[in-house]
Amino acid sequence: MQLKIRNLEKYYGQFQALSDVDLDVGDEEFVCLLGPSGCGKTTLLRIIAGLEPYSAGTLELAGKDLSTVGAQNRGFGIVFQSYSLFQHMTVADNIGYGLRIRKTPPVERAAKVQKLMELVHLQSFAQRYPYQLSGGQQQRVAIARALAVDPALLLLDEPLSALDARVRNDLRLEIRDVQRRLRIPTIMVTHDQEEALIMADKIVCMNAGKIEQIGTPKEIYSRPRTRFVADFVGISNFLTPQLAQTVLPDLGSHAPDAQHLLALRPEDISVSISDGAQACITHASFLGNVTRLTVDLGETTLLAESHHSQGLKTGDRVAISVAPDAGVWVRA
């Protein structure tokens, strides 16, 4: 185990920003802290970096207590959303900054910088200044700068949020690729569920200062444990146990108790034309690959998805069905 966090708490005055956070980050692991804004994910990252004090709990790196080690001496790399480059230094100087601070001999430094520039595909930009680079290029420089000092842990604070969609997509894969090659344990903060699903080995889903669930992307999506996770990652319909029994008679599972809700993904509901049925499509949105349908069942409405080939449209009378093992029971 590389990083080990136990019972971490953080108060801002009376406000509890983090409560009872336990988290492990293994060697070579890519962990995403995922949650809505204000959930405490950035606070957690900043505490790990040593930039923010915390109220209680322990932080250990490879068995060593971090509470007496300042940010300056933790040897972590950090990348912010805002690039944060030295505007008066060239790309090469920016990347070599940490090595200069560590008084690495110039020859060695130049070699390392050269290697890193190749890694992030910026060889030909060595003598440019940040203002002459695009956002994506600047962020690559920031990443290379963080990697230059062989960080024990790489911290990424929404590194892709300021970039436009296409660049973001490319960089997601590139960051993941570099991380795998260099085998640096990494923690990334993001509010974008798609980003977390694509990049992470492990997603830490946070809400209101607490960890709701930790799991692989697949676990988080298909086996959410709480209503929040099922709602925040992907789209879910929620049904009380009673309602589930009435509208989905084919369902095989039963609620563990009355506090649980059935979370049902739209793609798990099949919809078919059935003249004279009670259920009716009240809205159909074209989403490109699928059409999202709002189906009025009388007792409730459900979101479902269908392929265009079915040609369903608003006003159609329909029947719905689910597989016996569809849906997950989550805590309300």
Partner: peptide, 13 residues
Amino acid sequence: PAQLEETVTCIGG
């Protein structure tokens, strides 16, 4: 930028 200062701290400056 405060974050650039923090970056320097994390790099070890």
